[in-house]
Nucleic acid binder design. Sequence first.
DNA 1: TCACGCTTTGAAAGATATTTTCATCGCACG
DNA 2: CGTGCGATGAAAATATCTTTCAAAGCGTGA
Lengths: 306, 306
Amino acid sequence: MTQNAKETFRQCDTGPALAARVRTLSPTMPRSMQRVAEAVAADPAACAQLTVTALAQRTGTSEATVVRTARVLGYPGYRDLRLALAAFAAQQQSGAPASVTADIAVDDPLADVVAKLAHDERQTLADTAAGLDVSQLEAVVGALTAARRIDVYGIGASALVGQDLVQKLLRIGLIAHAHSDPHLAVTNAVQLRQGDVALAITHSGNTVDVIEPLRAAFDRGATTVAITGRPDGAVARYADLVLTTAVRRESELRPAAMSSRTSQLLVVDCLFVGVAQRTYERAAPALSASYEALAHRHSPEAPTAR
Amino acid sequence: MTQNAKETFRQCDTGPALAARVRTLSPTMPRSMQRVAEAVAADPAACAQLTVTALAQRTGTSEATVVRTARVLGYPGYRDLRLALAAFAAQQQSGAPASVTADIAVDDPLADVVAKLAHDERQTLADTAAGLDVSQLEAVVGALTAARRIDVYGIGASALVGQDLVQKLLRIGLIAHAHSDPHLAVTNAVQLRQGDVALAITHSGNTVDVIEPLRAAFDRGATTVAITGRPDGAVARYADLVLTTAVRRESELRPAAMSSRTSQLLVVDCLFVGVAQRTYERAAPALSASYEALAHRHSPEAPTAR
DNA sequence: TCACGCTTTGAAAGATATTTTCATCGCACG
DNA sequence: CGTGCGATGAAAATATCTTTCAAAGCGTGA
């Protein structure tokens, strides 16, 4: 039979993307949809066995809500979500032992803490990578590359991420500044104009201290970018471009700052590499130059692979 | 045959067993059922996307025949065969595409960059977790918990990691300072005494600017700790305790600073959680207090779906 | 504080998909 | 040349999924 042997592959990449989407989208959903999403994320294998009605009942919602959730997660309907769930469960079966997915307890031995934290950060990275909108990323890279001047706003843990970005950009010859003082940030923001880039980093998407300077830059006509876990947050109102980071459940011993930082740093790295690629002629010598310069600050030990 | 009563269906046999069963049972089947079985075995992924009607049409048979085939293959009905098919297909293609392990090229599309960076950082985390000496970690946590004062030294990218650690420790009531100015670092280091902790962060293990203050602290009798990728480096000479971070190959577009930072941050997080566990009585209220305090800095926006 | 409007939600109607039923067909054998 | 029996598909019956719509909830602004 001559069937259309061409790639009938659909975009429905069943893999980790599913869990990622659940975690990324979950916070922006209404309550009952969240319940469904949680149930699905908690036990995909079990949910794959359930009909709409059964899942609705189990989550204490209605069929309509289940279908709506499936839609938000990117499937045409529940039927397809179910298939993806089955696929996901199969893929996951050889995966992590349940113990590392549990929350960190006060009396966990340190070895477990290490395993759980590592697992969690790995998951965060996978989620972020899966959830990143590459076209937005592309646009941000373009804006950064062309910018006359780049201002970065971040507070608390996000301030460090901002500094990381700035360090990297400086290293390849861009003009970038990190601001964590809200007043100075605004003061500087009003100096920006079209062609400049203002970039705000906030996990919650609602941090006033970084939204204010971003707004100021926005009003001045600069290209504004937000790196946030909440693309529906207030920060997005003044952001021309939004890069979404994964959001994971937090707990007392695992503050949100921890996973958001991991997530944000991945985005920052992507930006850096993207810009470095596009300005390679200029960046490559700059990179080696800074490498050379640093060698002097190291003792003359020869570095070798261990 | 079996009526659809309470016959529970085991989904654990989705794997290669499916193909095997098709081959085993195929010869005993009537012609049209064979056609269905063949189609299923030939391209499970594609068949998983088809409805009964579609599969019947494609194989030139009827819905009834498809359902019968599903039954013979051991499933309660077509719906379940379809789920198994999806799971099977997912398992087949589960291995990581080799492409993500390759180095980042100047002309890689941004989507590949994201995938590669994420993959790499995930690998770094796994390596670090695997390579961490838990007994050393335990000792460091103990020292931090008991310390009167904690000084942290880091330069460049490691400076940010140091600040991250300090932010976290301050948050749970410890007295910690980050130093990235080598002179000030030494000046402060000589103030340390037994029972204090000095912690140096350096990827290369040979950064003079952080080794000097660590040495000063060491000479004063403080407990000295190194977080480094080179436990055989110069920094280890003045470190009572050494925590080893994973070292990955670097390249022009993927500076060492990138993966070392990921690695170092994991260690920092482990330290933080370890200390928080051991000082839980004090840390828990402090953590919630700082959380409360921050809430005021966020706008009162309610999260809503976009 | 209260009313307004927008969002969220579930009940039930509507549409599809799956399963069952049953009449017909094809083939082997008497 | 029948006759019997499994194989087969059309169509009915059922289960499942999707859509619609009205009511309830909730934040917003007067």
